[in-house]
Simulated assay, not measured.
Amino acid sequence: MSNTTLEVERECAEQQGCGAIELVLTPRDKDLGGFAVRRLLPTARRKTVGPWIFFDHMGPADFPAGQGIAVRPHPHINLATVTYLFEGEILHRDSLGSLQAIRPGDINLMVAGRGIVHSERERPEVTAAAHRLHGLQLWLALPEADEEVEPAFHHYPSADIPAVEVDGVPVRVLMGSAYGLSSPVRVFARTLYVEAHLQPGQTLTLPDAEERALYVAEGSLKLRDTALPGHSMAILTDEPAVEVEALEASRIALIGGEPLGRRFVEWNFVSSRKERIEQAKRDWREGRFPTVPGDDTEFIPLPG
């Protein structure tokens, strides 16, 4: 998705947690015209978790026939985007010529590097009927040495993502390594992204990482004496072997990895150098980014 303003940080309600929790974030929904998006990162109190610099939970959104998402072409630099759907389908196009339908369980990794343009729409076969869209969109900061790499697109179908049961809890290791499994998804720094589904009363010991955050996409959990309701994100400390318990059927996402240092974020641009973002803004205004084959008749203007 594209941001609608140059300012990316979203206000979140915050509370302190137990000794294993540094902070609990609760987002405020933003209505994009019948389509709710909850932003957890970046916030004023927490800009990043490991290499993760942006975390949006979109939907669930129910569209009638004839409607759906239609995100016009827009640019990115110096980051990698990760799209992961729970329900529905998004049609990805980019300036490399990629054309890929993203479906539930797949991982789409788009490496912007020195600059890429993409659009996110839905196929006519999807919008012809009533349908639902629901998922997560995340951004990864790239290490400074990789910020200007050649742009690339990688698609990993659901069947290629490793899965295991941990004490009866189904777990998928989407990125990085955990529970004895390693994901094939490309990473540029130590990166962790794990999904799990817990039934009421089930517990799960979370994998360790330099920095971690636990998001409750559905349901509710308990971490010791701290309740974590749906759509809350717990920024965890480095305490090892942290265990969570499901209070109801729950879907969780754990993100983390190594911190990469300060990054500037403005509109759809991320960089370790503020002047690089200013250059990208000029380049987009003046039409110097590449176009998207098959979707080159419109674009999102730079806000403001």
Rank of each mutant, 00 (worst) to 15 (best):
T43E: 01
I300C: 03
N78K: 11
V8W: 04
N78T: 01
A141T: 05
E144F: 00
L247T: 11
R38N: 10
R121Q: 11
P51G: 12
N108A: 12
P290C: 10
I161Y: 02
V71C: 04
D225E: 14
L41W: 00
G180I: 09
T5E: 11
E125V: 12
S98V: 01
P200T: 06
A246Q: 09
A253C: 11
F55I: 06
V216Q: 03
S183L: 06
R285M: 12
G230R: 14
G50F: 01
L198D: 05
L236F: 02
F269D: 05
E278Q: 14
R121A: 13
L79P: 00
A36G: 03
I21D: 01
D146R: 09
T83L: 04
F289E: 02
N78S: 14
E125G: 12
D146P: 01
F188C: 00
M58N: 07
E278T: 11
D167E: 15
H155M: 05
A65P: 08
A70E: 05
A13P: 00
V169K: 08
E150K: 10
V171N: 08
E144H: 05
N3C: 05
Q279E: 14
E298S: 13
G180T: 10
V194T: 10
V194L: 07
P151W: 04
P64T: 12
G19A: 14
L91E: 08
F55L: 15
F54E: 06
Q137P: 06
E248P: 03
H131V: 07
H197G: 03
G168R: 06
G261Y: 02
D208T: 11
L140F: 03
I69S: 03
E211A: 11
S250W: 06
A227W: 00
G230S: 13
V164H: 10
R38Y: 13
A152D: 06
F153G: 01
V71I: 15
E14I: 12
G68S: 08
V82R: 06
R263E: 01
D167H: 12
G68L: 08
H76Q: 05
V149R: 13
G113Q: 02
L32H: 14
P51H: 02
L99S: 09
E89G: 02
L138I: 08
A246M: 10
E89R: 15
V244E: 05
E7V: 09
T83A: 05
R93T: 07
A13F: 09
A213G: 10
P124E: 14
D29H: 01
D94L: 07
